[in-house]
């Protein structure tokens, strides 16, 4: 992308806006909302690795997310330090992801979706019912947020910047992943699994690695979640959460970098901001999803891009190319 392209300008402006957000938002409540959008966006980006690039739809990511949160929460409660708790949480999440992957990658399509769903429900069931281990419905409280390079993250802006750093790293790693040969091979397993196999690629291993990458970032976001709320309880691991993250990915647009971020923003804003003004926000959220699927089945970001191109072509050449008409599906 050239330095003068509109995309570069948009990117530069977004980065600038994100970096200065606490200054122009001011109210800590909205800064906190921004932090929430960012860490949910990390989960959505992580799930997108599987859904968008590997073509594997997981409904069990809430389990991985909660795994990180619970491991950290329980270790902190037991008196361990933040570093130990965080590392243990990531390791535990990676191990869980590996188990998830080994079991679920025996299948693709709906089978994969169902296995991940069931595995997620098992983890939820343990958090929910094994009260002597997880404190059940009462959840796990952690009293302090960590310090990061001497900065206390208790403050809303400080936590926002910490989250922004993680979010930035996640986006960069996703961008690298998408453009890398490995990313290409992941997409290959989505589109042409048999051909990839014939070409000598180990399709299973590629998918396994994609699952681990997805699990890693989900775990990182789970840590941010537990530090943000300083609390974790089984509801976080329920099917509802997995479904919401999947909705973020699909509504924003699978297989894009921006889509999951937009989707996360929609869901978080609906849940937290709009719910203060509209009592029936669940209804509105449902209607939004149905509308997106009915009018932009490919998701908001690719859909808007398509409409934009369509409008642009109409304006410039008055001869839209066949693939850009609304109604045609992207890809």
């Amino acid at each position: 992308m050239s330095l003068r392209s509109p995309r570069f300008a948009a990117l530069a402006i977004s980065i600038l806006l994100l970096l200065t957000l606490p200054a122009w938002v001011g109210n800590p409540y909205y800064i906190n909302i921004a932090s929430q959008i960012l860490f949910w966006a990390v989960v959505a980006l992580a799930l997108n690795v599987l859904v968008g690039y590997a073509g594997l739809v997981s409904l069990g990511h809430a389990g991985l997310f909660g795994m990180a949160g619970y491991t950290a929460g329980l270790l902190l409660q037991a008196g361990h330090g933040h570093l130990v708790a965080d590392i243990a949480a990531i390791v535990a999440t990676l191990l869980t992801s590996a188990i998830f992957a080994i079991l679920s990658l025996r299948s693709t399509g709906i089978g994969f979706l169902m296995i991940t769903l069931a595995l997620g429900q098992i983890l939820w069931g343990i958090a929910y019912r094994w009260a002597s281990l997880t404190n059940g419905d009462n959840g796990v409280n952690i009293t302090t947020r960590p310090e990061f390079l001497g900065i206390n993250l208790a403050n809303a802006s400080a936590f926002y910047y910490a989250t922004l750093v993680v979010f930035g790293l996640a986006v960069i790693s996703m961008a690298v992943f998408v453009r890398s040969p490995f990313g290409a091979s992941v997409r290959g397993t989505r589109d042409q699994a048999r051909r990839m196999n014939a070409l000598g690629y180990n399709v299973w291993l590629i998918r396994f690695m994609a699952f681990l990458i997805s699990g890693f970032w989900t775990g990182v976001a789970g840590l941010l979640f537990v530090y943000y709320n300083q609390f974790i309880s089984p509801q976080v691991m329920a099917l509802q959460t997995s479904a919401e993250v999947l909705l973020m990915v699909i509504s924003g647009g699978t297989g894009t970098l921006l889509g999951p971020v937009v989707g996360a923003a929609i869901v978080v804003i609906m849940k937290n901001v709009v719910s203060a003004y509209i009592e029936r926000w669940n209804l509105v959220l449902g209607v939004i999803f149905v509308a997106i699927i009915s009018f932009m089945p490919e998701g908001l970001v690719p859909g808007t891009a398509r409409l934009w191109r369509y409008g642009w072509h109409r304006l410039t050449s008055r001869k839209p190319s066949a693939g850009d008409k609304p109604g045609d599906r992207a890809q």
């Binding site: 399509g109 699909i250 669940n282 449902g286 999803f289 149905v290 009915s294």
Partner: peptide, 28 residues
């Protein structure tokens, strides 16, 4: 709604989930 999405699992998931939100809230 669903007819237009035949064979597309992902949009079907999103659509049916969306409707489940709507129905739950209407019932409430």
């Amino acid at each position: 709604f669903l007819k237009r999405l035949s064979g597309q699992e992902l949009p079907q998931v999103l659509l049916t989930l969306g409707f489940s939100f709507i129905i739950a809230d209407l019932c409430l």
